[in-house]
């Protein structure tokens, strides 16, 4: 497994995920999905975990496909009930397109996580992004999964206080949600205070210029990856426009 520079990974991920967002054609989208899976495999991204994260979204294919079939009068009807087209070829395509887009985004995110946050910060800094902002970004990325974990725990603890969620009014449900956020926010503020304190003690921003022990250098494989990213970006954009 090759070790790529975080900057070249970032460029690849930006290229692939923007393709994922704007490509309209189903076949091109499938090709991009396969490319992103291959790249994730090559950089050592955890594909299985990415796919597991998508699990709940897969059910959405059906919902989107049915909604699109009913309200979008395109394509051939595959299945209908009382003259309402429940499944059309166009609807099915929309559903699959949606899931391919999500797959591309999540899978390319797993490529990013193969770099440590220190490497990522350094990568951004060497891309001429100010250290403070680079640090902020990586801190944010670290915080997010922690936050979802905390909300889940907090919900479990709340239910265990004997709150039965079945058959209660919407007003009460909203109240429960506000209760959920109080401990999460309080916990987050506490964590943030701790981080701020430790940053202070380690002299964050004490001097104008930061030197770094870690200096990233592009290797040959990085140049290949960047060139490859540019090529697929251009080719797919061209094909997408031509097929319109």
């Amino acid at each position: 497994m090759k070790k790529f520079d975080p900057r070249s990974k970032l460029i690849f991920v930006i290229a692939v995920s923007s393709l994922g967002v704007f490509i309209k054609d189903l076949y091109l989208l499938s090709a991009v999905t396969i490319l992103s899976l291959a790249a994730a495999q090559m950089t050592g991204g955890n594909i299985i975990r990415g796919i597991r994260k998508l699990k709940t979204l897969y059910a959405m294919i059906i919902v989107i496909a049915v909604l699109q079939s009913i309200f979008n009068n395109e394509g051939r009807v595959l299945f209908e009930l009382f003259e309402i087209p429940l499944m059309t070829t166009a609807g099915l395509e929309r559903g699959i397109e949606f899931i391919l887009r999500m797959t591309i985004i999540i899978i390319s995110a797993t490529i990013i996580t193969t770099s440590t946050s220190r490497e990522m910060i350094q990568g951004l800094v060497q891309l001429k992004i100010p250290y403070e902002i680079a640090f902020l970004v990586s801190l944010g990325i670290r915080f997010l999964p922690m936050l979802t974990e905390e909300i889940k725990d907090s919900f479990t603890a709340l239910k265990l206080r004997g709150v039965v969620l079945k058959n209660i009014s919407l007003k009460k449900k909203i109240r429960i949600i506000t209760y959920l956020f109080l401990p999460v926010i309080a916990g987050t503020i506490k964590k943030a205070e701790k981080i701020a304190l430790s940053m202070e003690t380690k002299g964050f921003r004490a001097k104008k210029h930061r030197t770094s022990y870690l200096i990233l250098k592009y290797s040959k494989s990085d140049y290949y990856l960047i060139a490859f990213s540019m090529i697929i970006l251009l080719t797919f954009t061209y094909l997408n426009n031509k097929l319109k």
């Binding site: 479990t156 239910k159 265990l160 206080r161 004997g162 709150v163 039965v164 969620l165 079945k166």
Partner: peptide
């Protein structure tokens, strides 16, 4: 049992 019922 769901968690709310256990909590009771």
């Amino acid at each position: 049992l769901d968690l709310g019922e256990i909590g009771k």
